[in-house]
Amino acid sequence: MFKKICSLMRGGIAERGGVRVGHRIIEINGQSVVATAHEKIVQALSNSVGEIHMKTMPAAMFRLLTGQETPLYI
């Protein structure tokens, strides 16, 4: 359900902007995509013309904030 960056173009604009493999996509062009189906996100990105403003978050931080994973304290 959650959108994860699986690969990037080396030296591309996303990588230069700080996006990394494993990051979770949380917003596209000011709209939250946290609860959006994968297919709709792919379609939106494929049909985009011009600039795309995308917010991402490291997967570990995303899991902590959404409660997907409980941290272990040792």
Rank of each mutant, 00 (worst) to 15 (best):
M1G: 14
M1R: 03
F2M: 02
K4M: 06
K4S: 00
I5A: 00
I5F: 02
C6D: 03
C6Q: 05
S7H: 06
S7K: 12
S7Y: 10
S7E: 08
L8C: 00
L8M: 01
L8E: 00
L8G: 00
L8Q: 03
R10L: 14
R10G: 07
R10F: 12
R10M: 12
R10T: 15
G11D: 07
G11C: 07
G11H: 10
G11W: 15
G11E: 11
G12M: 13
G12F: 13
I13D: 12
A14T: 11
R16V: 08
R16T: 05
R16S: 09
G17Q: 06
V19F: 10
V19N: 03
V19I: 08
R20G: 02
R20K: 15
R20I: 01
G22Q: 03
G22A: 02
G22C: 03
G22F: 10
G22K: 04
H23V: 01
H23W: 07
R24M: 13
R24F: 09
I25T: 01
I26T: 15
I26Y: 08
I26P: 02
I26L: 07
I26K: 04
I26H: 06
E27A: 12
E27C: 11
E27V: 08
N29L: 05
G30Q: 10
G30H: 14
G30Y: 08
S32L: 09
S32W: 14
S32P: 09
V33C: 09
V34G: 01
A35T: 07
A35H: 11
T36G: 04
T36D: 07
T36Y: 11
H38E: 05
H38Y: 09
H38K: 05
V42T: 05
A44C: 13
N47H: 10
N47Q: 12
N47G: 00
S48C: 02
G50I: 11
G50L: 06
E51M: 06
H53E: 03
K55S: 05
K55V: 02
K55T: 01
T56C: 06
T56Y: 05
T56Q: 03
M57W: 02
P58C: 13
A59F: 11
A60K: 14
A60E: 15
M61Y: 10
M61T: 12
M61L: 12
F62I: 01
F62E: 00
R63S: 11
R63K: 15
R63L: 12
L64H: 08
L64V: 10
L64R: 11
L65G: 01
L65T: 02
L65E: 11
L65I: 03
T66F: 06
T66R: 13
T66A: 09
G67Y: 02
G67H: 04
G67D: 05
G67V: 06
Q68A: 09
E69C: 09
T70D: 10
T70F: 08
L72R: 04
L72N: 01
Y73R: 03
Y73C: 00
Y73K: 02
Y73I: 10
Y73Q: 00
I74E: 05
I74K: 08
